[in-house]
Every structure is written in structure tokens, then in C-alpha cells.
Design a protein around this nucleic acid. Structure first.
Lengths: 420, 420
DNA sequence: ATTCTTTTATTGTGCTTGTGAATAAAATAG
DNA sequence: CTATTTTATTCACAAGCACAATAAAAGAAT
């Protein structure tokens, strides 16, 4: 074997249901190999054609043909010559960072708007406070995007990706379930597309965050993982068999609304004792109010600050949240048995203190087998923004994708450049 | 468009993680199309080449080539001529039912051994009572298989598939978790392979059952489903994005051991208040013992018989089980949002009475969106046996597969005939 | 009976793609 | 200035599918 990429052994993926069958042809092979090469360029850039051939297992001649195609499609650009100890220098290839994506991370009270290039570098970033009416809020987001576009008019704008604090139907791209954002039935995608004249992709925040982790290479080799977002509520994104699972209407991952104690407090969803009424940041604030009844109403950041300062009631409150988080992970480990569990959100800022609590509870309640690797994603905001960009690239290029996210919608393997 | 199979629109699946990348070539395209054709033959047999061309969208010439390959591999055989109103008669193609698979459905107290052909028809079937020691039990299973093999020595035996009441690691093919079967560390696969000189595949019973439903065509067009097995415990099999999810060590699907009430009775797994202590058949028997304390200890079949006869305590007991089953489905709908939920196991024999209870509780606790379609699989035993056969065919042919089940192991696209 | 029509199945040509070997290109080492 | 090494391209070949033409095998029409 010349390459580390198996050509035998594990084999291609097939669909089982005839309704979705797709026939294969030589173009199909090219598509797959194109995506593999693009992915290697992305993760190893700058990189020479010869290196691509070595690490992909494809023949140099094939690499040349594919790279030629990628350059003509504007995804990749040739860069400097690399001098090696001996032999002809290689021309280095990189992703074409003249291509940029406008992204937004919408949260209940503010949105972050940013401009990201193909390499995930931020060219601009701005916080936009939101108001209650969706129309005015979206108007402010659009305004921010327009000024970013004007300030970088030399770039090619590939599209717009938006991370939403709720579930987005992958087919209709409508917001299906967003308890913390009262934007029901407002056509976010349509309005922004109209105003910006760029294609808009919506994604759930947890899924965006997970996609960003996938792109960062952190989950290389991991085919089953769950990412848990802890903030006002608890959300989750699921990676199963190497694919992000969104399921019907994009609703998969609502572990936060699994019932764990029928005698527990009522949840925003109407049920009693959902996991998130015990383990969300809101729960931590409630615990603190019980433990320190005379204290004023805090925000979660103030509470976490107090834990850093050694406030015992604050530590007890967040610890109680951590215990419930860890115990509730049993829902995740039992049902999906992931190899990795990633936590993101408020309490990860004090991970050194609360991580071990979660870990301990999770391990103690494991059913069988080795416990999953528990970790955090450091910067949830940047992660969601990068994930939103990744969703756009997936849609537009088919590139580096979990199939479901590209399942609907026509395939447009066009050149990358949209607007100059 | 000549065919109903999309060539555009939804597109091929790709891997994202480089560690598992597989390159594509023309052979790859042939493999995919071969599998599609084989699947159409399986589901529409007997069928003519011309029909295959029409319903696959492939050219007649390509169909001829693929069929020639399938015949040479012994998967398919030519049958009678079909006379049509006009034109040249077509030669009908069918799966070659000279190929057979030995299967077993192992349950805590007995195993069913059977012989199945490629069409899922049963050629023989026998119950084998099991004893406590795994060695003697397996010996009895092997003995039954040997006599079936002797009685059908004219057939080609393709392999052995075994449905197990526990979780099987897809990589090592060892039984990882089987609370109701004390066969820890006994190498079932190795022993049977040694004795029978045929390749053995183990599968979890729920996964086998789900695979059988997939093969039956019942889940055509469904890409997200969960199958729940209700017996001594509660198991589940997960179909997400059209693939069966087994996850790390094959442990995915243990919804039965999700905690739903910390004040509940202790479960065999050591935790308190798992779903299965409220919703399994064992739970129904416990409810009955509480409601009719003077009654003798019943089996679940006797209890269900009593409900048929109108015994009010029995009806109340199983109804309570049904209520907990339906409420617990919230775990499934919240986390995976499947389009279909299938129930299999004891209480499905009285589905007319208890199905509506489950349905009602499930719908009332839904988080958002339309409720999944709730149904049952009629004959769990036959279903598991067929599923066990399907696992063998998947492994040996790559055919009609969810990728994870074939992920490990070498690919042997050899002729189907193994032993004459 | 013979010819036309219809449908099935195969054969042959052309296009795309990947492989593998040979070649060209561009540097350093001697 | 030549030999060596490494990079990248070119070319012949094979696999595979599409498309068109042809052969094959019936019934229908004359």
C-alpha cells in the first residue's frame, strides 16, 4: 500500500431505500475524489500536488486533473513555490481566500455578524443588539452585512450562513422550534436573500457548532459524537456514522426535553421534569436563588464570576447544575453511545472546576463499555460562526459534507464565484 | 426524466473524516449500480431486463452487463419466458434460491434455528431449548444446524446469521451487553464457525428486526425510524439518515435504560427508574401482581391471554405498561424525531387494545412537529430470523446495506456459492 | 405465408475517469 | 556542466456508462 487511505477494506456507502437511489457513473467518481482532494487541501494547506497524490492515494495525473478543475472553479488558488532540499520545487495550493461568506450567530438578545473566508479566518465581526420584532431585528442584521460587504468589495461573496437558536427544517429552511426566540413564521431566509441578493442557509446553533468541530479536524476519526449546548436551555447535535443527524424537520437532538423526573418543575415546553429544567444555566440561577435567597437576580455570567471568586453558594449552585448535566448524559450515552461528548456554553468557562463533576457523574451512570471522551468547545460563538460558514460551503459545493444537510436542494457544482 | 430515480437532486453520500476516506473509481460505480440492480430484482422479482432498465434508469446495455455479472456470481438466475401482448418475450430474472442461509434467533430460554433462502422463505425451522451453560446451548444449536444442512445438501450454504438478545460489537463480533443471557466471554461466533465451517455473523435482535423491516420494503422512503422491542426489557434499533446506527461497540439504542424517574424501582442495570422498569413485559407482570395480589405468578403470555378474555386486572396492568411505553417514547421522539416508530414484542399481540393507548400518550407528550407514524411488526420471531439472514447477505455481498454493518471486515465480492 | 410492428436484448462507438509508465521540467549536488 | 532528485504533465490503456444501431422473437396485418 502506498497510501494510508484504504482502497479495499471498508467500502463505499450505499443507500438502501429505492426511493433515494442514485445511480453511479464516472462523473460520480470524479465528484467524490474532487471532494476528497479539496478536503485534504483545506486541512493541509498550503500543499503541493505531489503531497496530495501521496496522502490521497490518487495518481499524480489524476491529482493534476482534479486540481485543474478546482482552480477553474475558483475554489483553489496556486501560491508560492516551495523549495525543497533536492529536486524541482513544488507549487503550493491553498483555498482561494478571495472567497468569503457572511455569517450571523443569532441569539435571543443579540446577533453577531461576521465575515469569514474559506479558511475560517475572520475579516470582520460586529455585535448587533436585537429587538422584539423579527422584522426590525433582521433589518439590523442586514444593515450590518451590507456595510461589511461594502468594506470588502474586492472579495467574492459566496453566500450567507446563519446559526439560529432553534431547530431549522432542512427542507423548508423555516424555524420550527425556537422557545427562546419569538420569530414564529417570519421568513428570515427569504427576507435576507431578497435584501442581500445572496443565498442564505439557516442552521441550528448546535449543528453549526458540531460542523465547525468537524471542520477543525478535532473529530477526525470519530464517527459517533454528541455535542451539548448549555445555555438558557439544553440543545444537542448528533454525529452518527460520521453524519450529522437532523432527522425529520431538523428536530433531532432535543435531549434537553427528555423527561428525567416527573416530580420536577415544569419546563417551558409544558412537560414536567425535562433534563434542561435541572441542568441548564437557568437551572443554575434557580439553584443559586434558593441557596442565597437574599441575593439579587443575577445573570449566568455574574454567577460564574462569583464561582471564580470562591462564592460558596454560587459554587454549590453551578455544581448542582453540573451534577444534573452529568447524570443526564446517561440519556445520551444509553441511546447513542457516542465516542465523544462535547459540551459548549456558559459553564465551560469554569471547566476546571465543573468538568470533573460532570465527568464523574457521567462515568458512574454508564451502562456498559468505556465512557465517551468528554470535552468542551472553547469558544462557542466563533465556533457557531465558523459552522454557519461551513453550512454555506457544504450547500454550494457539495464539499466536505454530511449528506443530510445537502439532501434537499439542487446540486450546483458551479464555479465558486458569485459576485465580484 | 425516463426514470423515477433521481440522478440530480439528492446526491451521493460522502465521508467527511479523512481516516475513512475511500477513493472512487469506475469499479466503485459498478458496485453501486450492481447493488441497485440486485435490490430491484429482489424487490420486484421475477423481473425482466427491460423492466430493470426502466425502473433503474440505467441503459439496457448496462443492465445486460450487470445481470451477466450477477448470474456469473450466482446471485441471480434466469427463469421462465414471459409472454407479453406484443413483442419479444422477456426472460425473467429471480434471486437464485439455491442459496440458503442458516439462521438462529437466540432468546434467554430457547433458540429458533431455521433455514432461509435468498427470498426470505423458510425451508426449515426448529425450536431448541437452551440450558444455562453457553457451551452446551451452542452445541445444541450447532446440532440442529447440522441436521438442516444434511437435509438440504442440494443447496449452497452462504453463511450463518444469529440474532442475539444483547448488544454485539460490530468490530469484534463479541457480545458486549446481554443482561438476560449469561454468556459472558463465550466465543459464540468462533465455536460455531469452527463446527460448521461457515462464516457466522452476530447481530442484536432489535437491529436484525429493523433490517428485516428494511428488506421487506415497509420502510421504503423512510430515512429515520426507531424500532422498539418490548419483552423482558426494552431494546431499540435506530435508523438515522437511512442507516442503521450501532455506534461504538454496537451499544446504541439502549433507550430502555434511560432514567425517567429517580424515585422508581431499581433496574437490573443498577440504576433507579429506567424506562424499562416501567414499560417492559416484566413491569406489566409486576403491575398485575400488585393489582391481583392473590394470583399466582404468570408468564407474560398468560397475562396477555387474560386481557383477551376481559380480565380487568390484567387489562389494567398491561394498560399501565402501555401508558409508560407511550410516555417514554418521548425519549425517542425528542432525541431522534423519527418519522416512524415500530413496536415489536409481547404486547403487540393485543395491539388493537393497547396500541391506541401508546399512541395517545406519545402524541400528548410530543415536543413539536407531527407525531411519528406508530406501527408494529407482526411476527418478531420470523422478523428476527429474516434479519439475521439479511445480515449475512450484507456482509457477504455488500448488497443492500447500511454502511456501518459492513464497515469492518474485508470486502469479498466473490461468487455467492460457498459450499455445495 | 409473408411482411409489418412491437418489444426485448445485445453489440459497437464514444465519452469520462482513473491507472501506470514515460517524459518533461526545475531545482541541487558533485 | 552533468548527474540526481523531485515535481508535474502527457500518453496509452482499461473500466464503465450512455447512446445508437442491430439482432432476436414474438404477435398483427395483409
Amino acid at each position: 500500500m502506498k497510501s494510508n487511505h484504504a482502497k479495499n477494506g471498508t467500502r463505499g456507502i450505499k443507500r438502501i431505500d429505492l426511493a433515494y437511489v442514485e445511480l453511479a457513473s464516472s462523473e460520480n467518481a470524479r465528484d467524490i475524489n474532487r471532494d476528497i482532494v479539496l478536503e485534504i487541501i483545506r486541512s493541509q494547506q498550503p500543499v503541493a500536488r505531489a503531497d496530495l497524490a501521496r496522502s490521497s492515494g490518487l495518481q499524480p495525473s489524476t491529482i493534476s486533473a482534479i486540481v485543474e478543475q478546482l482552480i477553474s472553479e475558483k475554489w483553489v488558488s496556486e501560491g508560492a513555490l516551495a523549495r525543497r532540499p533536492r529536486g524541482r520545487p513544488s507549487t503550493l495550493l491553498s483555498l482561494n481566500d478571495a472567497l468569503v461568506i457572511l455569517v450571523a450567530d443569532v441569539r435571543p438578545h443579540q446577533a453577531i455578524v461576521a465575515l469569514v473566508d474559506l479558511n475560517g479566518r475572520f475579516l470582520a465581526r460586529e455585535a448587533v443588539p436585537l429587538v422584539s420584532e423579527p422584522a426590525r431585528s433582521v433589518e439590523k442584521i442586514v444593515h450590518s452585512m451590507q456595510s461589511m460587504r461594502a468594506a470588502h468589495s474586492d472579495r467574492s461573496f459566496e453566500g450567507i450562513g446563519i446559526s439560529m437558536p432553534g431547530r431549522v427544517d432542512p427542507e423548508s429552511q423555516r424555524l420550527i422550534l425556537a422557545p427562546n426566540l419569538k420569530w414564529a413564521d417570519y421568513d428570515i431566509k427569504g427576507v435576507i436573500e431578497e435584501q442581500m441578493q445572496l443565498q442564505v442557509e439557516l442552521a441550528n446553533a448546535a449543528n453549526a457548532c458540531l460542523l465547525s468541530e468537524l471542520w477543525s479536524g478535532r473529530l477526525d476519526g470519530i464517527r459517533n459524537a454528541v455535542l451539548i449546548t448549555v445555555s438558557e436551555g439544553i440543545g444537542a447535535a448528533i454525529l452518527a456514522n460520521g453524519q450529522i443527524i437532523t432527522s425529520r424537520s431538523g428536530l433531532a437532538g432535543e435531549f434537553g426535553h427528555s423527561p428525567i423526573d416527573p416530580s420536577g418543575p415544569i419546563c417551558g415546553c409544558g412537560q414536567h421534569g425535562c433534563w434542561e429544567v435541572f441542568a441548564s444555566s437557568t437551572a443554575a440561577l434557580r439553584y443559586y436563588a434558593e441557596l442565597a435567597p437574599k441575593s439579587r437576580q443575577l445573570t449566568i455570567h455574574e454567577l460564574l464570576r462569583l464561582t471564580e471568586e470562591g462564592d460558596s453558594a454560587a459554587i454549590a449552585a453551578v455544581s448542582r447544575q453540573a451534577v444534573h448535566l452529568g447524570r443526564g448524559l446517561r440519556l445520551v450515552t444509553a441511546s447513542l453511545s457516542p465516542e465523544v461528548v462535547l459540551i459548549t456554553g456558559d459553564l465551560t468557562t469554569s471547566w476546571a472546576r465543573f468538568g470533573p463533576i460532570i465527568q464523574k457523574e457521567m462515568v458512574e451512570t454508564m451502562l456498559a463499555g468505556a465512557p465517551p471522551n468528554l470535552g468542551i468547545t472553547k469558544d462557542g460563538e466563533l465556533s457557531r460562526l465558523r459552522g454557519a460558514a461551513a453550512v454555506v460551503l457544504q450547500r454550494h459545493s457539495g464539499y466536505h459534507t454530511s449528506p443530510h444537510l445537502t439532501a434537499s436542494g439542487k446540486r450546483n457544482r458551479r464555479s465558486a464565484t458569485v459576485v465580484s
